[in-house]
Design a protein around this nucleic acid. Structure first.
Lengths: 220, 220
DNA sequence: TTAAAAGTGTAACCGATGTTACACTCCAGA
DNA sequence: TCTGGAGTGTAACATCGGTTACACTTTTAA
């Protein structure tokens, strides 16, 4: 789930000995025991931290889109890279290790040097942040739709942009309900009503849009 | 509202003749008449576009946080800069001019050259995107709280982090309700209940947190 | 093959929030 | 000073979605 998510491409190889890292890069690596509080909410974020071993938890929006709750981050991944360069550069949440963890730390000015000297690193960094913005924007659009049928419509129309009018989801209803941040029976109720209205048809995880116009009207 | 928003710092001076731009920069400027569709949803985004004159509208989340609806963008501001470097580099929405507009276009490879040759430009670009991520993350946290009292609690606790237990908001109740994406009478009802419970007290736009613990319990 | 677990359909009920309506206060401008 | 508009408090009612419960189906694993 974590590492093949397109949202996080670009940092997989940071802990390998590849051309992204010049030999004179200043960095440090620190090991943390299990259940250690690594960063406290409000800590200032003056370096790029990359989790290269182990896993940690925070309380952000999760990357698979489920709402709030605990996010579990597995290596290799950067920790809150957006906060290194933002105007308010303090950690937004607590970060705690779930198991023994190893964290790479590159000071901010070294990151800047790295970016100017290694355009590939810069591009990866920017691509990473850009993907994150897309992801968040998309989730926000979905969440700001108030009705369940509206959320479903938005989601299905998005799917159909990529896959046409018939497609198979890789989530079951329970997961879909989590994704939307609603209760499972409520989702089922809305889905069956929409099917009854002839707007969609459902066969297990295969969804068919029968009436795109009707679907669009549900967006409000 | 638009230009003094910290979310968009870093691009104010892009249309001025300052040191950020080398003399050999390749760019083009195009003028559009009123009510012209400039970008269509799905158009591929292969350059950095900066609105330097006029205003346009899109259907994103608005920068002052109000939900969905139309976002009006006034010059000077970059248009969807996150989509230039994301893996899926196509415009997320339609963009239409509201009045005559002037748009600066810098091709992607020129942007890359600019960033490697002008560290300040790179820093501004990254800071801009980082701020956007913070903004979106924060909105997402707020929106994913389901109850009205929960949203209020989250918001007030955030304010109190910066301003202490008593502070004055620059929004009235109507605007606050829009910001939360709820109905105005519902907000008023919840606020008065919270005041009755002794958790907060309200005097016009001045809010005082009387019981921070009780407030935190409302977050769920 | 079969039993257990996971997933789904659906109904009854209830609480939270939206809708609508109206009265009241406050303030700005005529 | 008066008046109209914006902002606010609040009540009655409608609606949506959450909760709980249970039966049924499908998948998984023994």
């Amino acid at each position: 789930m974590t590492n093949n998510n397109p949202e996080w491409t670009g940092f997989e190889n940071l802990n390998e000995d590849n051309e992204l890292f010049p030999s004179d890069l200043k960095y440090s690596i620190k090991n943390y025991p299990k259940n250690e509080l690594i960063f406290r909410q409000g800590d200032s974020c003056d370096a790029l931290y990359i989790l290269i071993q182990g896993s940690v938890k925070t309380e952000m929006i999760t990357e698979n889109g489920n709402l709030l709750g605990i996010e579990i981050i597995k290596a290799p991944r950067p920790l809150a890279p957006a906060f290194l360069f933002s105007d308010n550069n303090s950690f937004p949440v607590d970060v705690t290790t779930l198991e023994e963890a190893e964290i790479l730390r590159i000071p901010k000015d070294e990151v800047i040097r790295l970016m100017t000297s290694q355009p590939d690193f810069m591009k990866q960094f920017i691509t990473h942040n850009s993907n994150r913005i897309q992801f968040l924007t998309n989730r926000l659009q979905l969440l700001s739709i108030k009705t369940i049928k509206g959320k479903i419509a938005y989601f299905l129309l998005e799917q159909s942009k990529e896959h046409g009018l018939t497609f198979t989801l890789n989530r079951n209803q329970t997961e879909l309900a989590d994704f939307f941040g609603i209760a499972r029976p409520s989702l089922a109720r809305s889905l069956s009503e929409m099917a009854q209205d002839g707007i969609i048809s459902i066969n297990k995880k295969e969804y068919t849009i029968l009436n795109p116009k009707g679907l669009r009207e549900l967006l409000v």
